[in-house]
Nucleic acid binder design. Structure first.
Lengths: 197, 197
DNA sequence: GATCGACTTGGACGACTGCCCAGAAGCCTA
DNA sequence: TAGGCTTCTGGGCAGTCGTCCAAGTCGATC
């Protein structure tokens, strides 16, 4: 059933996805055109609409793949840390690799933004973020965090995204100096949460 | 010296800025065109380039004005809260008014994103965010927060931006349920920060 | 009323866009 | 080798874009 043909198509499709992801990070969701993607992938302009129904279709497929891989790797390795306080310190060190203006950071922010206007993308991204949140919450619970682990995980993920955002404004922002407040949040001897008000 | 003429010009300029801010929130930084702005402002297409050197020039001027007003109002009213723990609860209630996909939320995210690629905008936005951070830090210090107030303020502002981002993905996210972790972070009896490691 | 400068108008320019499609090329089965 | 299917090519379409500019309108000054 046309195996080599299908293979040829698959690699072209993959090249298009890679080129699209790179371009989204470079020039933004709104700055990517079909011709730019085709040129970077080394194919004719028309081939984009052979493999994808439309430009948004291509961009959604390209960026969700990258985002899922990034977030899953980050939360997976966070869960390997022995305890929450060590975990957030490791996390800040890891985040320090992102400048806020590098392709990976920009791709994430671009996605959040595009998601606000594209319901299809929003649902996909929401699923990815919710998965991370659940995974972190259960890791906190396993490690003896006494408070509301769901809420703590939600704030932690939000803080991470916010810090990536702020690094874009101030590349000199020292993330490792922020360990104190985050440690206070994930500390295992919570003596109030979940029982007051 | 043509006072009424100058006045006429000023109102047109202001109308252009208002129309631009609204459009950025609606269709995104990359989706705004000179013709759209002119039409919404009720003027001829060419008038945009009479008042502004270029389209980016107009967009930068429009969005920084709105962002400064928003952030200054939020941090100003936060600083009026009696103590940090009450403060973060008030803050979460305030943030609940934003759906994450409303014009105000989108304008903020759009700005962060555009700032990553426009140095001029980045510097302006950095200044605004740094001001808020300083103000919150000194408020924490005045209210007896024992830890690293600079770091706590930085994480707090980051968490706020991150939560606005996440509300865009999940409008059902209950922000008030996240008070616990944030209270733990700003609690005034910090018994470790600033002295370990 | 004449004159001047600030402001506005709306059409024009070339460049770029997403999408389309007829035809060519490649590969597989028979 | 012949036929058929998948994939690729590159030009074409109608539309929008940012920017520009000659001509026009307006209010203030003399």
């Amino acid at each position: 059933m046309a195996e080599a043909s299908a293979d040829r198509g698959r690699t072209t499709r993959q090249r298009l996805l890679g080129a699209a992801a790179a371009l989204i990070a470079e020039v933004g969701w709104g700055g990517v055109s079909t011709r730019m993607v085709a040129e970077r992938a080394g194919v004719a302009p028309g081939v984009v609409h052979y493999h994808f129904a439309s430009l948004p279709d291509l961009l959604i497929t390209a960026s969700t793949g990258v985002a899922r891989a990034m977030l899953e790797e980050l939360t997976g390795r966070l869960a390997e840390q022995p305890d929450p306080e060590t975990g957030v310190e490791w996390l800040l060190g890891e985040l320090s690799r992102y400048t806020g203006t590098d392709p990976a950071s920009l791709l994430i922010v671009e996605m959040y933004l595009a998601a606000a206007r594209l319901p299809e993308l929003r649902d996909l991204l929401h699923e990815i973020v919710a998965d991370s949140r659940t995974q972190i919450a259960s890791w906190l619970r396993d490690r003896g965090h006494a408070g509301d682990t769901e809420a703590t995980a939600a704030v932690l993920v939000a803080a991470v995204d916010g810090l990536v955002l702020h690094r874009g404004l101030d590349p000199g922002l020292d993330l490792t100096a922020l360990a104190g407040p985050l440690r206070a949040m994930v500390r295992t001897d919570g003596h109030e949460e979940g029982s007051e008000t």
